[in-house]
Design a protein around this nucleic acid. Structure first.
Length: 103
DNA sequence: CAGCAGGCGGCAC
DNA sequence: AGTGCCGCCTGCT
């Protein structure tokens, strides 16, 4: 499987996440057919421009926390977008029980 | 709650 | 084509 396809698989899967829901890196990787490749997801998202159409902000760590430095612009933006979708995100933390997506 | 090793893919040499 | 290092991770000490 071409690497470009794997990247697409991740982005395609990500597009399926509805607003107001979140997904963990590992969960997304698995859903994209790449179990265990959580870190790959992080890298792919890191290459996306902040104003990308991709809902990268719906991806959080398996602990239900934003996996970015709290003082980074990305962190601010992610929490802002999540709140805009109705996700109660405080200090980069949220309840997976309530917002985790499951296809 | 912090620290560490494990597992998967991408990329540079 | 082979090898090694690195990451917006994870789960277990």
């Amino acid at each position: 499987m071409p690497s470009s396809t794997k990247r697409e698989a991740i982005l395609t899967t990500l597009h399926q996440i509805p607003a107001g829901k979140v997904i963990a890196y590992g969960q997304l990787a698995a859903a994209a057919g790449l179990p265990g490749a959580a870190r790959l997801v992080g890298r792919v998202l890191g290459e996306l421009p902040e104003d990308s159409q991709v809902p990268w902000h719906r991806v959080v760590s398996a602990q239900g926390k934003i996996s970015l430095p709290p003082d980074s612009s990305g962190f601010i933006e992610q929490e802002r977008r999540l709140r805009a979708e109705g996700v109660n995100c405080v200090n980069g933390k949220l309840s997976l029980k309530r917002y985790q997506w499951s296809g």
